[in-house]
Design a protein around this nucleic acid. Structure first.
Lengths: 254, 254
DNA sequence: ATAATGGTTTCGTATTGTGAAATATATCTC
DNA sequence: GAGATATATTTCACAATACGAAACCATTAT
């Protein structure tokens, strides 16, 4: 097997070092995070900037992701056929329940939002495509785990589950029981486990090979979601996920 | 000045070779487009794939943009503060006029959609963030040119304007006159110049340094936009662009 | 005024990326 | 089914590049 291009890997790791907690970083900070020499980091940034992949804030000297990545990301998003096919289902669900609806996939131990349709109400759960969230304490993550392969499940259970709120389920056995209940009712529930004030329900999209392709979730402010409303939304998201699964069942998507 | 990293530039040009007309390409095709050796292209693709920047379709052997670019693009989009600040204005305008509304910027001789809010009506103009469109025959482009610097204007006028429809204005003097009328009424008009069946109006967002930061456009199917409706929408987009310009005027955005 | 910190540049050289050539795989034609 | 064609993948000698140590520059803090 051929050897990967070292400086290319370094550059990609550099780009991936930016996240929404660190949208801007300087040469020295990036060098420290990536364990690279400042001269190397500077040379990579200089080249990325020439092609518009990063841009330097002249006032601070720090760098951020550039316009070319916005464009490539938009093109990459267009090609996620699951997103495209799911959109009408998400729109219908959002219009019916008037809460924030999202589509997420599992990736490297976390859930990543592929699409978010926010509630039309003034008070709503804000989320963004591309954002990552933990698996063990979110409705999306639990809907995934309940139907995931044993390997993904053991990966999560073998790692320390850090409490996000006092309601976070951190005991592996309690989580397994929660996942059993999820399978029983066909949708997961997160009651202020990931963030105080937010409740959510989610259901899996199963593809033609009986694998969890993605999950659909509904999230809302806790005060607007008494138990009977949670049940209603759970049934709605289960129904939508089932319809989308059926819609996708005839063909596999990437 | 330091010398850019050659293989990094090559990799970025490779990624930028993908567009919505060419979402998937193989090693040989990319080598031809980029004038690089197949072994070089293969090595770059192999490395990009390791980090998730591209993925190979096992069925066809061709490559497409990968999930990491989707994520980076989403993060890059989040940081375009103009997009964020403009969104409420775009939403209000779209809800009022019930046609597709978009925000675009000028980049390298073309307009690029930053944000698109599609009409809620069943028949609507579909557009996508990240897409590019010509300057001389779109409402967005003409709104930009009317207020752009002389350099951008001469760049466009000195290049051949290829007709997109029988209505495309290709004569430099006729275009200049059209731009004069645009400045006079405060918004541009494109009557099926870019695509048969589509009419659009657009107005510039002027920042605190009196430069055109972006443009807002409204686009709709021609049959739904008789002349008096075009005038209404023109006034509406002009008003929204002015409000946004004022909103942004106190601070420069990147 | 000096020190500390972060960004930028230089340049000798070790390491890497290159591409010519070969091999492997898949598809097409007869 | 054999041979031809096209594309993808791999190998390896070596030329060219990327590297990082050191120095320099600019800004901020003391």
């Amino acid at each position: 097997m051929s050897r990967p291009v070292q400086v290319l890997q370094r550059a990609m790791k550099l780009l991936t070092a930016f996240d929404h907690d660190h949208p801007e970083m300087g040469v020295t900070e990036l060098a420290q995070r990536l364990d690279l020499h400042k001269a190397t980091v500077h040379r990579i940034l200089f080249t990325l900037e020439l092609e518009g992949f990063v841009q330097q804030n002249p006032a601070t000297g720090k760098y951020r992701l550039g316009f070319r990545l916005f464009e490539l990301g938009a093109l990459a998003a267009e090609q996620i056929s699951l997103r495209r096919e799911a959109l009408p289902f998400l729109e219908k669900l959002r219009d019916e329940c008037r809460e924030t609806v999202d589509l997420a996939v599992y990736d490297n131990g976390e859930m990543v939002y592929l699409e978010v349709l926010e509630s039309p109400l003034p008070i709503k759960i804000a989320a963004r495509p591309g954002r990552r969230l933990p698996v063990y304490c979110t409705a999306s993550g639990k809907a995934y785990l309940a139907y995931a392969g044993e390997e993904d499940l053991q990966t999560v259970l073998s790692q320390e589950m850090i409490p996000c709120t006092p309601n976070t389920i951190c005991d592996p056995e309690a989580l397994q029981e929660d996942l059993r209940l999820t399978r029983e009712r066909g949708y997961s529930i997160s009651l202020e486990e990931y963030e105080i004030g937010i409740k959510a329900v989610a259901a899996p999209i199963i593809n033609g090979l009986s694998r969890v392709e993605a999950v659909i979730a509904i999230a809302g402010p806790a005060y607007r979601l008494p138990p009977e409303r949670v049940t209603e939304l759970g049934e709605a998201v289960r129904q939508t996920a089932r319809e989308l699964s059926r819609h996708l069942g005839g063909r596999l998507t990437t």
